[in-house]
Design a protein around this nucleic acid. Sequence first.
DNA 1: GTACTTGCAAATTGTTTGCAGACAC
DNA 2: GTGTCTGCAAACAATTTGCAAGTAC
Lengths: 142, 142
Amino acid sequence: MDKLTTNDAVALLRRAGVPVTVQRLEIARVLFSRPLHVSADQVLAMARENAPETSRATVYNTLKLFREKKLVKELIVDPERVVYDSNTHPHYHLYDINTGELTDVSAEELRVVGVPRLPEGVELEQVDVIIRVRGKAVSEAA
Amino acid sequence: MDKLTTNDAVALLRRAGVPVTVQRLEIARVLFSRPLHVSADQVLAMARENAPETSRATVYNTLKLFREKKLVKELIVDPERVVYDSNTHPHYHLYDINTGELTDVSAEELRVVGVPRLPEGVELEQVDVIIRVRGKAVSEAA
DNA sequence: GTACTTGCAAATTGTTTGCAGACAC
DNA sequence: GTGTCTGCAAACAATTTGCAAGTAC
């Protein structure tokens, strides 16, 4: 609900080396007020609440920029759409195939043992773990 | 190169409870002659080598059917396209962001420790681990 | 004959692109 | 003034859908 103050958002962008604009500010305030899993379209909708003139293309541009600057992580979890995660600390995910719900699994809780040594010249970008579950007994008789 | 015999492919489909048709046979022969990572379009191209009248829609239908029957696994690794894996044994993947190359990591090599207990009604579908790397020093001076 | 499959082409959807105007410094 | 952003609309690509004809038993 309560978003980042404009000042905090400006500071955050500057620190990351992202030139500040009105739209980027609003998108940052949407994303970084709390850890969030959102699609580009959801970001657009949320940004437009406060900055109605924001365009879809700008959201895509901004999300790409934020990813380059390591402000968000892209989650490739659903073939339909990319999900952006504003939590960039190492952690993993639990994904409900039926509902599309995405839940964090902390890196303390879950460990990946035995990541193979990489050939020289190849560097690790990130390790994704997605625990796919189906269930939540898609309410039949409600 | 050498594909499954028609008899073997028929047996394989029957065992999985998939009604046999010419197209499904050819797609099965393409997929199950060896462990493979392929996109729908690649399957189409490979199937058309022997069965040129195969349509794109049929390939999508068949891949979806094969997935339901657990004959292939869907890998959500690249936002652009779904990759089908004809190796359904538990294993994980290493993905080169630059080249798109996808490599298996065996379940002996890599272990996921601490998968959280699931609420009742929720059942585990599969655990995906994708080690994303960038590198292979995209040949500059070749 | 009945039910399932197929091929085709059109529709859909997330994302990207080209470009002209707006903005920042 | 120059270079960076933005909005818009058109372009794109993977996948899905509707439907009429084809096939299997």
